[in-house]
Design a protein around this nucleic acid. Structure first.
Lengths: 350, 350
DNA sequence: TTGAAAGCGTTACCAC
DNA sequence: GTGGTAACGCTTTCAA
């Protein structure tokens, strides 16, 4: 390399070559100084570090990852950021990744865009792992990732038979818990507001809820919400309460829909929980605030994040695992949006 | 490269070399097929693309960026994700970056960690641009970025004299707007709840608010909130209302604090806005929901995101600009958390 | 412990 | 329009 080329490069950014030239050592030595396990004398390391600091040299992780095949980047796919549920999930994951020296690369599919479409783009970034929330992938894509040895974890979704890791709240159990709770409060005309058609999370909550109600011979009205939005919950609640046989409790498949439902009802003169009990699913922080004080099934956010990273291979155990599904139980938060329909009596389970 | 080496690599991932070998063309040709502007025959391009698809080849953007010096990654620094304000900001930015072929790399400083500390780590990723929200950097760091020709934009903060791009809501003007509005509603004992000590956003809102009040000879109580959290707002509201001279309006420096304040007051028997008017600053979606129906200054989220990307050089204009500060006016959202203190009379401004 | 040299998977430049 | 070859900035053998 002649001097003019070097000068030109230097203007751009400081490289290991540059530091080596200044110190009169080889470029390999610079690399070693920045590798914890490399064999290098303590004296040399400090010399390198000092000069590096002076010149403002920082190793280029992009160039490094070409050799090491590790980018220290984990891709996270989220359907949207406006639902506080995903904000919590992203927060939990990022807080765990950063101390491990990993950063989060965000992918938000546009509405209607399948995860399968964006996965190739995502793989181009050579990420060390992929976390996909509230969506699934084709088995072909799952194989493509496996072939590249890029671990993938589905978060908040699982697909029986699909050869892929999955971590989810136990939605069936959650639905049952809520049914049990509402039955205990002597509700007799419960309704369930579903999310997107075909979304397994919502269907599982529904099936757990409905089947537990049926155990006690209680029928359940099913209302299609359409999607997991405030507005969808808002509309669904009004449709339900305008029926000739309005429910005495509404279980929304997600908190954000419950918030919409509560606002709709209150704006229309209904008192919660006196006129109707409201329950949600997620347990986002807002559900605990006084304005909503929403009874809900709280996702085990921390445990889910821990499990996801463990399955990605970021845990303490460095074992490559065969596709595993982890179902974690949520916690019912008994709050003010629900009340017993016969407060005088204490229900005795038999 | 001998055959055994090639076989080993092939098992890992498909490279351009591999596609070239299969097609019996040079590796350069593969590269050209994936470069829109490259000169290559249409026939060859389709042949390459077909084989690439069959083999599952996708260009390695990490290797590419080593040559092009573009990673198509923009770093976004956010203090936390639990405040819905940042969820909106992140959402707006990501939605604009993705269509431009750019992805978002997230950095969340741990509490107490300065942005200056994480900037070196961030720069190692060779990102094409950096957006820092609600924080600032030292002039030394700003110079370090400038030297590397990595554009930086401060979002929701600006530092006069610092050689760095900045985009912010006009906080002084916002404070004045709110003062004007509350005066128009005949409030006479307004209070302001500040955020973190020394945060320019909060101080600017305060100074605009207070100075406009003084124009009308109205005094303002200043309450230190401490930080931008629900709990801080909760506590501050109670302190204010327990004074011997409680305010008739409370202007919180951020929506999330106002939410806490409203919940605190309602839980303690206060009626909003009858007993006291509440106002916030940010205009997050939740502020518009019926549960809070909060009067607030809505940040010009879209324009701020547009401006930030433009200053990063992602706009239509490809001009490298000298450090620019863009102040954009917010919009006062007149909602139900505030009311006129003398509804009979229409105030006539003189 | 250190230096030289061979990759890592691309793009860019130069001939033809 | 295409092939060869030199970067890009690093890590990692292999000798010394």
């Amino acid at each position: 390399m002649d001097e003019s080329t070097r000068a030109k490069r230097q203007r751009q950014r400081v490289t290991a070559d540059e530091v080596a030239r200044v110190l009169g050592v080889s470029q390999s030595t610079i690399s070693r100084a920045f590798t914890a396990t490399a064999s290098i004398s303590e004296e040399m390391r400090t010399r390198v570090m000092t000069t590096a600091a002076e010149l403002g040299y920082q190793p280029n992780v992009i160039a490094r990852s070409l050799m090491t095949r590790r980018t220290n980047i984990v891709a996270i796919v989220l359907p949207n950021l406006t639902d506080p549920f995903y904000a919590v999930v992203l927060d939990e994951l990022t807080q765990r990744l950063q101390p491990r020296g990993c950063q989060t690369l965000l992918f938000v599919p546009t509405p209607g865009q399948e995860v399968d479409e964006i996965l190739p783009t995502l793989l181009q970034y050579q990420v060390d792992g992929i976390i996909i929330t509230s969506a699934t992938v084709s088995s072909a894509m799952a194989r493509a990732c496996a072939k590249r040895e890029t671990p993938v974890v589905l978060l908040n979704r699982y697909v029986p038979g699909l050869e892929i890791h999955a971590v989810s709240c136990d939605n069936v159990a959650g639905g049952r818990q809520m049914a049990e709770f509402l039955l205990g409060q002597h509700h007799r005309r419960p309704a369930f507001v579903a999310g997107q058609l075909g979304a397994s999370t919502s269907m599982d909550r529904q099936s757990g809820f409905v089947s537990r109600l049926q155990d006690d011979g209680v029928e359940c009205v099913i209302e299609q919400g359409g999607d997991h939005t405030y507005q969808a919950g808002f509309d669904a609640a009004l449709r339900l309460m305008r029926r000739s046989d309005p429910p005495d409790a509404i279980f929304f498949t997600s908190d954000i829909m419950a918030f919409g439902g509560m606002d709709a009802l209150r704006s229309n003169g209904f008192i919660i929980p006196d006129h109707v009990s409201i329950a949600g699913f997620n347990g986002v922080p807002l559900a605990g605030w006084a304005a909503y004080d929403l009874t809900t099934i709280r996702h085990p956010f921390s445990q889910m994040a821990d499990a996801a990273l463990e399955l990605l291979g970021f845990g303490d155990a460095e074992v490559t695992q065969s596709p595993t599904t982890r179902l974690i139980h949520g916690t019912l938060m008994d709050r003010g949006s629900t009340m017993s329909r016969s407060p005088e009596r204490t229900r005795v389970r038999g």
